[in-house]
Amino acid sequence: MGLQVLTACRLIDSRVVYLAHDGNWSEWIEEGETASSEAESEALKARGKAGEAANVVFETYLVDVVDDSGTLKPVSLREFIRANGPTIHPNFGLQAERRKKGDNQAITRRNAATARKVASE
C-alpha cells in the first residue's frame, strides 16, 4: 500500500488537522505522521479515536498521500483542497501561510518530523 496520514477536524474551529508524530494535531500535512502498512494505518486510526474521545477532534479518517519530493501531497482533489484551502481564494487557508512562510520551511518541518520518527524507532 501507499502512504497514508490521519486527518481530522479540530473541534474548536473545525480546521483541517493531521495527526503528527509527536501526538499533536498539526495544521500542516507535512507534519503528519505517515503510515505505510495496514498495521501502521490501524495504529493511526486508534490514536485518532483517542483524539475524538478527548474532544479535541472529530471525524478522523485516513488520507492517501504521495511523497512529492520531500513534501506530502494528497492524492484526491478533495484532500488537496482540504490541505491547501479554497482554490478560489489563494489568500485564505494554508496555501497563503505556506507561501508566506516559504515552502522550504514547511519541508524543513516535515524533514524534522521524519527525523524524529526515525530516531524513535
Partner: peptide, 28 residues
C-alpha cells in the same frame, strides 16, 4: 456541552445544524 464531551459528535450534529452550523471542508 459539546466542548466537555457531554454531547457526542453524533448528538451535537443535528443540534448545530438546526442552528445553521455546518462542518465544511476547511472550517465551520
Amino acid at each position: 456541552r459539546r466542548m466537555t464531551g457531554a454531547l457526542t459528535a453524533d448528538e451535537f450534529r443535528p443540534l448545530r445544524l438546526m442552528n445553521g452550523l455546518y462542518a465544511q471542508l476547511h472550517a465551520y
